[in-house]
Design a protein around this nucleic acid. Structure first.
Lengths: 245, 245
DNA sequence: AGCGATTGGGCTATATTCTGGACCATTCCC
DNA sequence: GGGAATGGTCCAGAATATAGCCCAATCGCT
């Protein structure tokens, strides 16, 4: 036990990545879009103002906007009433399925992680939620019911889950739940998400009822069951794309 | 419902941060030190080699090393058998307590988050652990028992918890548990952690026994109880530092 | 003692990124 | 038509990153 010092250390490069400012801006805006806090049709503040709000130079922001323009997520109009407007990005569904098949293991980890964190959040929400929190969840459910497009459905689904996560009252937990959702849905974004509206509404109703009556056990269990269904849907999609693997 | 488009979006600057390469290197090395994967006395590879392993230029690495030198965490020797050597950084305990009092809410969130993620990891470990995993946990326990300094105790504690997290077999969960641990202990690092050895060994024994016999319920519950104790210790420390608040 | 190898220290030149500012071109609204 | 708001463009300087080169210090071996 005397000479266990002086070891030469092993290095893992994976965690060392410089992030240029324009990339940080792109990441932030894409995250907000995926989480539905910025929606197609929304207008971003004017470049000079937005740059100031983000704390970067205008040219840096413009580099980020050019990238988002290139991916079709933003269109920029000139003139007095102009500015950057968020678009509904369209991606080839087959591309998405192949991408998902390529990171199947990561996606299943993600699904499991969501089950852990979001069922805990549902339990905590049942204990701590305010009436305002509950109202936000009801509103998201109404949006889901009224949703006429796949995109609107996914957005309402996100809003519902994030409302629960936020009402759990733990900022670290909320951040993790957002992260997992971004990692799971960001590449997917728009594709065949009919199942969200078809099957999720009733599952949400059950979760909501448990949270409303402060029943932590039932809320956690209902959330777990709901996410297990979601996981199955993802597995089916991955299987569809890569039957040869 | 027709004109809910065209909203000008609100911006939250907090998530937009460029990370220069040298800062990414500093963050990585400090994380490895906090998690005990790099220990005081260890020697890092020579600058040219380390820079290549990290995928950065030598000058960039040297900037990072100068920062770590400034914080007393690294000393650099020249000559044939030279190189950067990790040091045991010494911080004023009173400074630490004040820092912790300043972010008390964040620390309690962190403690709660650890309870959620690590008890889930303990459950999963009980179901999936290999015999190798179990051996690593036993080894960490032996290190804890043999530890003669506060620093060694904390290191053995970290090794035990990370061994469980890793054996749960979910990379996303492992990453979250590491993150939470870094955020909780990084500023603290070295201070009065006698309690770790005093009270943790027996708690670890209970967790370990449950994992060994594949008892998921008992493992999860034992971990939850253990982390509840840890949370109380932190609350006591915070209270000591800021009795006026 | 001396030599050679290894290592950090220092420097230059170049490229990329970021900033702050200025000025022009376009578009909208009155 | 005119004023105001907005994007488009360009510039000069700072900070950061890279690749390469040589010098200085140290160690270990002969």
């Amino acid at each position: 036990m005397g000479t266990d010092s002086g070891n030469v250390v092993e290095i893992d490069q994976t965690n060392v990545r410089a992030i240029p400012g324009y990339q940080a801006v792109v990441d932030y805006l894409r995250r907000e879009i995926t989480l539905g806090r910025i929606r197609p049709g929304d207008r971003l503040p004017a470049e000079r103002k937005l740059a100031a709000q983000l704390g970067v130079a205008r040219e840096t922001l413009r580099q980020a906007l050019r990238i988002l323009e290139g991916s079709g997520q933003v269109v920029i109009h000139r003139g007095a009433a102009g500015g950057p407007v968020i678009q509904e990005a369209l991606i080839d569904p087959q591309m998405i399925k192949l991408d998902m098949a390529g990171r199947a293991e990561s996606i299943l980890d993600l699904a499991e992680f969501r089950s852990i964190t979001e069922s805990a959040a549902a339990r905590m929400s049942a204990e701590r939620r305010s009436d305002d929190d509950l109202a936000r969840m009801h509103e998201a459910q109404a949006e889901l019911l009224a949703a006429s497009t796949k995109h609107d459905s996914r957005l309402a689904d996100t809003t519902f889950h994030l409302a629960i996560a936020a009402s759990a009252g733990n900022s670290m937990l909320l951040q993790s739940i957002e992260d997992a959702r971004v990692k799971m849905f960001a590449p997917v974004d728009l594709m065949s998400f009919e199942f969200v509206k078809d099957s999720s509404y009733e599952a949400h109703e059950e979760i909501l009822a448990a949270i409303a009556r402060h029943d932590a056990d039932a809320a956690g269990e209902a959330m777990r069951a709901h996410l297990a269904t979601t996981k199955l849907e993802f597995e089916r999609l991955i299987g569809d794309a890569a039957p040869t693997a």
